[in-house]
Nucleic acid binder design. Structure first.
Length: 274
DNA sequence: CTGTTCTCCTGTGGGC
DNA sequence: TGCCCACAGGAGAACA
């Protein structure tokens, strides 16, 4: 389940192979992802040279001559670089290969097909998937004042708020629970009841957790072409997520669990008071 | 606008 | 032991 750090790690892993390379061809074996892949995509991509690989929220943006290839990994997607001469035959869920002129190919794999591969000739700011997105969590724009301002007029819980991409992007279900634990904020706290200190702690916690995960991802980068495309940092220790009934590392009490908007939420009822 | 529910999909794991 | 089915989840779409 790629969260923002995994997407960023993927970006850093694939960028050196893609930037300045020219796309020779694309082999699309499965068009049915979250949205159908454009039928003509292989033709569009042919002879395009990649300038840069960027990330916005959890989307990867592969900038080409005449447009942008947008890739989202969804729940189970991954990208890896494969030496074209040694490429193993595609397996069941290897849906797309993008073949480069430098001897490598970019292979997209996604068992659950929640991901997306889109082509746009719009600028990202104008694209409807991006035009309403909030700031990146690791920028200065995302600070306690900003969060407080946004929270003030909202009746939803603070957990729902930080997972709302219009408020801030890139905080998925796992890191939402983890950052609320670190900030000692109860996930059910009404957004409009958040105080200054809590906002400070929460913003800090989100940044620390994402930073740490990206850093951990970097250590597995050297194996990027050999791995299955899943950087191994995800094993980083989780304090509450998935630990229902287990002991809080901080206070020793029992981690609790409930569902909100169909999503599992984990917290320590002692460390995180409303 | 806001908030909530639905939806896509398949590998995993809990329960019997 | 083996089978079956509920569950998990990112995030846009649809709906209230």
């Amino acid at each position: 389940m790629p969260e923002l750090p995994e997407v960023e790690t993927t970006r850093r892993g694939i960028a050196p192979y893609l930037e300045k390379a020219t796309i020779l061809d694309a082999e699309i074996r499965q068009f049915s992802l979250r949205w159908p892949i454009e039928q003509n995509l292989a033709n569009i991509l042919k002879n395009q040279t990649v300038s840069t690989v960027q990330r916005r929220a959890k989307y990867l943006l592969i900038n080409c001559d005449t447009g942008i290839l947008i890739i989202h990994l969804g729940m189970s997607g991954s990208l890896r670089i494969v030496d074209a001469a040694l490429a193993p035959p595609p397996e069941k869920h290897d849906h797309v290969d993008i073949i480069l002129n430098n001897g490598f190919m970019l292979r997209y794999t996604d068992p659950r097909r929640f991901g997306a591969i889109l082509w746009t000739e719009q600028t990202i700011e104008d694209h409807k998937l991006f035009s309403h997105l909030g700031p990146e969590p690791l920028t200065q724009q995302f600070d306690a004042n900003y969060l407080l301002t946004q929270a003030k007029s909202r009746k939803c819980s603070i957990k729902t708020l930080i997972m709302n991409g219009q408020i801030v992007v890139g905080v998925g279900n796992i890191y939402a629970s983890e950052s609320l634990f670190l900030a000692k904020v109860h996930p059910k706290t009404s957004a409009n009841k958040l105080n200054k200190q809590q906002a400070n702690q929460l913003v800090e916690a989100i940044k620390v957790i994402l930073d740490k995960a990206i850093l951990a991802g970097g250590t597995s980068l050297k194996d990027f072409t050999k791995s299955d495309g899943k950087p191994g940092y995800f094993s980083q220790e989780l304090n509450v997520y998935g630990r229902k009934g287990e002991t809080c590392f901080h206070c020793g009490n029992t981690i609790e669990h409930y569902k909100e908007t169909q999503r599992a939420t984990y917290y320590c009822p002692v460390c995180q008071q409303i």
